[in-house]
């Protein structure tokens, strides 16, 4: 492999990592605050993608540039409506109950959403590439890339990363979320409404999943079953990083994206194996993930 190919692989890895990061960070955030592994996260991703495509197809005839706000709108709608519903009506009655019940109820939500998606959007692949087509291609060593994939997606991922950091570290709402994460009892006793924090956090996490889907929608065909693959991949990334670790998730997503790209260039047969093998190796050595702090939760 020469240096030209290495640079191409890096570009491919980055654009892939950007999408994976957006979805995984939502999962990680929800776990960090609510201590719930949201199995329906992949379905929120799929719903975000489908709704974004529906919106873009609707607004594209007016002006193709309207598809960008449409993507954003779709992810917020899904985050608030679906995410809000799951937290409020499915998870909330279960707080304080067995962890496995919380996890399973999101599994039930996953099954239902997977089915609803087929009933709502049908089974024929849907494709809405307007946003992708608006931006020009860039050429690197004679190889064309879409700037949507190599510039816009990583840009959004970086903005999300720094936005979340700023929000959690430098705003009051963020400080409240951090407080509940650190110690629920203590923060409740000083008057923080933990339920509201859970609600808001879940909506943010769900919106991020939907945003990942919305941004992916111009690059791929939307098909039944797209959520089931995304959830385990994003889970692998979040767990490898350490659940609840935002910066860690970004670095891990990058690591998995790059490894995957190089593997496709060198040994394409092992592509699918990469994230899971990394996950096993990391968890065996560091069960709390690469960036997880050991005291997160012991017994």
């Amino acid at each position: 492999m020469n240096s030209t190919l290495a640079i191409l692989a890096v570009l491919d890895g980055i654009s892939y990592a950007a999408l994976v990061f957006l979805v995984s960070v939502g999962l990680s955030l929800i776990f960090g605050v609510l201590r719930v592994v949201n199995v329906a996260h992949g379905s929120l991703y799929a719903f975000g993608a489908y709704l974004a495509a529906t919106f873009s197809i609707k607004v594209a005839p007016l002006s193709p540039w309207l598809t960008y706000p449409a993507l954003l709108a779709a992810s917020v709608v899904i985050g608030v409506v679906c995410g809000g519903f799951i937290e409020r009506f499915l998870l909330r009655p279960l707080y304080g109950r067995d962890d496995v019940l919380q996890l399973l109820i999101t599994f039930a939500a996953f099954m239902i959403m997977d089915n609803l998606q087929r009933l709502i959007w049908g089974v024929q692949p849907i494709f809405a590439a307007e946003p992708l087509k608006l931006l020009p291609n860039v050429t690197v060593f004679g190889v064309n890339y879409t700037s949507y994939q190599v510039i816009l997606l990583p840009g959004v991922a970086l903005m999300t990363l720094f936005g979340l950091r700023y929000f959690l570290r430098h705003t009051l709402a963020g400080a409240v979320i951090m407080a509940v994460t650190e110690d629920r009892e203590a923060s409740t006793s000083i008057g923080i409404d933990a339920r509201r924090v859970y609600f808001v956090t879940f909506i943010i996490g769900a919106s991020l999943a939907a945003l990942g889907g919305a941004l992916a929608s111009p690059t791929t065909s939307l098909v039944p079953g797209m959520g089931a693959d995304m959830i385990v991949l994003s889970f692998a990334v979040a767990a490898t990083a350490g659940l609840g670790q935002i910066e860690g998730t970004a670095l891990t997503a990058l690591m998995i994206g790059l490894t995957r790209a190089f593997v496709i260039y060198l040994q394409p047969e092992f592509e699918v194996l990469v994230p899971y093998l990394l996950m096993v190796l990391v968890l065996l050595v560091r069960p709390y993930g690469l960036f997880g702090a050991t005291q997160v939760r012991k017994i």
Binding site: L5, L11, S15, G142, M230, I264
Partner: peptide, 14 residues
């Protein structure tokens, strides 16, 4: 069912 062939496309372009 892979959602993304970007890397495969890059490799073929090269």
């Amino acid at each position: 069912g892979a959602p993304d062939y970007s890397t495969e496309v890059s490799r073929l372009l090269a």
